[in-house]
Design a protein around this nucleic acid. Structure first.
Lengths: 233, 233
DNA sequence: TGTAATGTTTACCAATCGGTCAAATATCGA
DNA sequence: TCGATATTTGACCGATTGGTAAACATTACA
């Protein structure tokens, strides 16, 4: 009889490495397309080209598969933010962060959708990761941005919402890809849309919209920008 | 025996109105939280406080419930973009569009998540709506923005990506709410975060980040902003 | 008030779900 | 080559899925 997977303390065979790789690849396909609850082990098994009990030989439960996948992908996913350099030039750091995030949206859309599905549905499996490692990393980088603003290197702005806006605008091109394609139409649905997006976003974040030609836009101090009263939550 | 719902040509009774309302409200709760595939009729029935066959008396299939819900919500959801006024002042139009979208993210997060779930999973049920009514509306408003840029009223920018960036940044606060809360921490998770977001986003879209004090930021013409070569799609 | 149409529920169905089991097969070191 | 170990599979399980049939309850209206 086979040794229970829980008892394996170290990687044993070449086959295990290959098959676990194969399974996680298939799981990424399925989970990112349908979310955790909407995905089935049978679907993953079919994509991976192996039988369902064989999947369950390597990962005891659907949950274990999902957790392994998340763990594997999360580190890579936060790489661009980790690369955000306090000692660099603010403008070029922000530019390259946007570019890196956009490249990831283009090259790893499934990873983006995996997290989007998870967070959208209340992050039941990654709440700890969000409140722990993610929050710590963002706190650290937010402090960098705050220091830049204090030193007059960039405009005063809420660093957390700056990070949120870079996340949302870039990941939008992965998560809402079908909508982007539908709106742009067939003729603009080539990969060129990522270059257009890069140009637009870098300009947006650096210049804003009102900086037109030589006329440095001078806008209201923002006293009228608060939202109207809340009705319900 | 009851008349099949397909044969009903017009609204009949008070009960039908009330119960269909009740069901769609419950369906919004469940679908927005788990997506279509991840939701079950039993869950919706429980939230609605009625039996499963009773639900199926009003909506013959899970699909029909979902479709009815989408139809009902889509019109309202596009209202802010429809209100975008070609004759208004560009800056205030953009400001109020952002504010309206942010209010919707705050007041109707379930509606936002319903669409997010749907689009994220490939929009299998609303592809026609995206390519039809949505695209038409965006095309129309994009033309308005393009005209503003041509007239020198705002900076030259891709109007489609402008709209995408407003969508993504505002809806982020509904769709990724748990992540936003986790990163901001408990102390900043009150409704105040929407006002912070409003201030930040209005400034971002109007001024950009480099417009610091009297120093009108002069950035590179953007020759280095293209993404690196594509590896795969 | 009676009755026909509408509304609701219990019991049930076949299909699919996540997961188990034992037997069969492939792999590998000695 | 052999035996131990690792891998794979078909058959199966109870629970849950979307959906149905028909009996039963309520309502609207003449």
């Amino acid at each position: 009889m086979a040794i229970p997977r829980a008892a394996r303390t170290q990687r044993r065979t070449r086959i295990q490495e290959e098959k676990e790789e194969l399974i996680l690849e298939a799981a990424l396909d399925v989970f990112s397309a349908s979310g955790f609850r909407g995905s089935t082990i049978d679907q993953i098994a079919e994509v991976a080209g192996m039988s369902k009990p064989n999947l369950l030989y390597y990962f005891r439960t659907k949950d274990a598969m999902h957790r392994a996948l998340i763990d594997r992908v999360l580190f890579t996913w936060l790489e661009p933010l980790r690369a955000f350099n306090a000692d660099g030039n603010p403008e070029s750091e922000i530019r390259s962060y946007i570019r890196r995030k956009l490249e990831m949206a283009r090259d790893f859309p499934r990873e983006s959708r995996l997290f989007a599905n998870e967070v959208l549905q209340g992050a039941p499996h990654i709440e700890d990761e969000l409140k722990g490692p993610l929050k710590s990393l963002v706190d650290e980088k937010a402090e960098v941005i705050r220091a830049w603003a204090k030193a007059g290197k960039i405009a005063k702005c809420d660093p957390y919402h700056l990070i949120f806006s870079i996340w949302s605008t870039t990941q939008h091109y992965a998560d809402f890809d079908v909508q982007v394609r539908a709106v742009l139409g067939q003729e603009h649905s080539g990969v060129g849309r990522f270059e257009d997006a890069a140009r637009y976003l870098e300009k947006l974040f650096v210049d804003g919209l009102m900086t037109v030609g030589n006329d440095a836009g001078q806008s209201n101090p923002g006293q009228g920008s608060a939202l109207s009263p809340v009705s319900a939550d």
